[in-house]
């Protein structure tokens, strides 16, 4: 799958990588059981520190999207798709309801950020 990181973004590099893995799972680019590139290789490819990739993988593991197998690398969990697809459906529903109320995209982002802080 394609990874793109932007150093000028306000989102951390690790978060950018994690978001793209999640998107890959939802879109089907990453299939359950598929192996992610080794952290060292991906870090070299993206010209970022290996710990940045490891931080992204750790976050994905905590969110139960991937599993780390000792000495074998990171793999997409067999049950990763269902939860993420549910969140995607919720997001689509949120967008639909928000548009009905006349909220703009930045209003929705602000609401989500406020929810996240709480």
């Amino acid at each position: 799958m394609l990874f793109v990181v932007d150093a000028s973004s306000s989102v951390s590099l690790a978060e950018q990588i994690a978001v793209q893995v999640r998107s890959g799972v939802v879109s089907g680019d990453l299939k359950p059981g598929e192996r992610l590139p080794p952290a060292r290789d991906l870090a070299k490819s993206l010209r970022v520190n290996m710990h940045t990739v490891l931080r992204a993988y750790a976050e994905l593991r905590n969110d139960e999207v991937i599993e780390m197998r000792q000495g074998r690398g990171a793999f997409v969990r067999k049950d990763a798709g269902a939860g993420l697809i549910h969140v995607t459906e919720l997001a689509a529903q949120l967008m639909h309801e928000a548009r009905k109320l006349g909220l703009t995209q930045s209003d929705i982002v602000r609401l989500i950020q406020r929810g996240g802080i709480r």
Binding site: M1, L2, F3, V4, V5, D6, A7, S8, E34, R35, P37, D41, L42, S45, L46, R47, V48
Partner: peptide, 15 residues
């Protein structure tokens, strides 16, 4: 082509 921001870095990997 793929359109990137000038500050972005792209990489593709598949097993």
């Amino acid at each position: 082509r793929i359109d990137f921001a000038p500050s972005a870095v792209g990489a593709w990997s598949q097993t």
